[in-house]
Design a protein around this nucleic acid. Structure first.
Lengths: 265, 265
DNA sequence: ACGCCCTTGTGAACGTTTGCACAAAGTCGG
DNA sequence: CCGACTTTGTGCAAACGTTCACAAGGGCGT
């Protein structure tokens, strides 16, 4: 925002892109542990996580030198280190606002309660659902936000309300000292500096998919349509461009003859 | 991930980062249209979308020169252009696999049906829910995947199953010629090249939030704890690092004295 | 004890994304 | 019709992220 001429930037230095991948590594490591695997090489771990092995090593190197050359990484030890770095060794109470279809789905989501996160409360403003039970939690009124947040020391809030009330809920959460918000409402939240907002937006993801799908069907017209459908390494799952190696789409919709009216002029 | 010495790449040249933001602009533009606003400047649009105005202009410039200098962008025209670029002017049938809490939430999600996407079918493998209705759709058996995909020319599939069956469902979708997959299951899907996978993962988002929250609480110990809570411009909502406005973040975390037990050895 | 072989950790090159700053280009009032 | 003002579109440089390639380091067989 404001100019930073010579930012001292005490940023202790883990790149944001790395942070976003650590949870994926962590999940794979848990799976390894459950399989009884004691050590993994960067190559194996990278393949399972769907990334380049050099990237994985660089990511892990930001945490420290926790690997053993010639062997790999100790699964259990690495799990601990990543967990600590992400702050998962402490308990994070979470409040879910909005007990509609989505809110209930979230409350029932198993991976929620596990690994450090704990649902402190589920709130809603609809009197019809207040008092009913979801995933072992009695739904409380939305007017309890401040009290619940203070009582459980909540610092993470999940907004699963309609877009129309998302900003109001967000404001109340922020006023109650919640500094991390996960927003499922399809809108851009306005928050003060120092509050961290992440959004999960089905509609946006679908539109990105549609773009690639459309492009694929157009590109297919080009030469060299080798229909090789070989099972390659896992395509990048982090939103990078599609590989479009041998894109064999049937005969879907070329009809863009609908040249539109230019409204202005 | 084979080497690509000289990728012919018919990439017509819209950066991936831009594609990811276009849906946000589109949503803001729709909101403007509903408010009766006819034209917007890049500054206004950028503020509403939570991005830098220069970035917005550069993004839009990739689609063409659709603005008018000294005035701004015509809302309706820009909506059309972005929609066309994203491929939203055509109809995208979508199949949802998994009718649990999440699948039902998705099926009921309003923004789904609107703007180009249409639910072709909702499937599940649980005999207890097959035949019941969700959001106007009779839930069909998961063994109908191939038939439904072929019949409705589905090219986008949404996986809302437990992680344990996600890969199997994915394989069947891919075999049935679905080339775009939105994965809600908490796992990395393995797909052939040419298939586009995007993932939405609550657990990962929470862990990223936890990391920032943890860092913030450590940083707070530092000097200059000015509790200025002024309402600033919308903090970046795309997952970038938290602004932490006054955050000078100096001597954070020297305490790595807690050298843990090395399990192996 | 020694040397081979495997894997990590990282320097350096490359590509992508962001943000500034400004010229080009249009509108609008007089 | 003209000049002042506003806003777009973009060249450029810095920041950020990815990938390659390889030296450093450690285990393991002999």
């Amino acid at each position: 925002m404001s100019r930073r001429p010579a930012p001292p930037r005490g940023n202790q230095g883990i790149p944001e892109a790395t942070i976003a991948r650590l949870p994926v590594y962590l999940r794979v490591l848990y799976a390894c542990g459950e399989q009884g695997i004691a050590t993994v090489s960067s190559e194996e771990l990278a393949a399972a996580a769907g990334v380049n092995s050099a990237k994985l090593r660089k990511d892990l190197s930001h945490l420290g030198s926790y690997g053993t050359r010639g062997v790999g990484y100790d699964v259990e030890y690495l799990v601990y280190q990543i967990s600590r770095e992400l702050g998962l060794t402490q308990d994070w109470p979470v409040v879910i606002v909005g007990a509609g279809n989505l809110g209930r789905a979230l409350a029932n989501y198993g991976g929620f309660a596990s690994r450090g996160f704990r649902i402190a409360a589920v709130l809603d403003s609809d009197a019809a659902v207040i008092g009913t039970e979801v995933a072992g939690h009695i739904i409380q009124g939305a007017d309890q936000i401040e009290q619940v947040v203070a009582q459980h020391r909540v610092s993470i809030g999940v907004i699963a309300t309609p877009a129309s009330s998302a900003q109001a809920v967000c404001d109340r959460l922020v006023a109650a000292d919640v500094t991390s918000i996960l927003n499922f409402a399809p809108m851009v939240l306005n928050v003060p500096a120092g509050v961290d907002v992440r959004k999960v937006d089905l509609s946006i993801e679908l539109q990105i998919l549609a773009f690639h799908a459309q492009r694929r069907s157009v590109v297919r017209v080009s030469e060299d349509g080798r229909p090789s459908y070989r099972r390659a390494g896992p395509a990048d799952q982090n939103g990078d461009a599609v590989a479009t190696a041998g894109g064999v789409v049937p005969a879907a919709v070329p009809g863009n003859a609908t040249q539109p009216q230019v409204t202005g002029s």
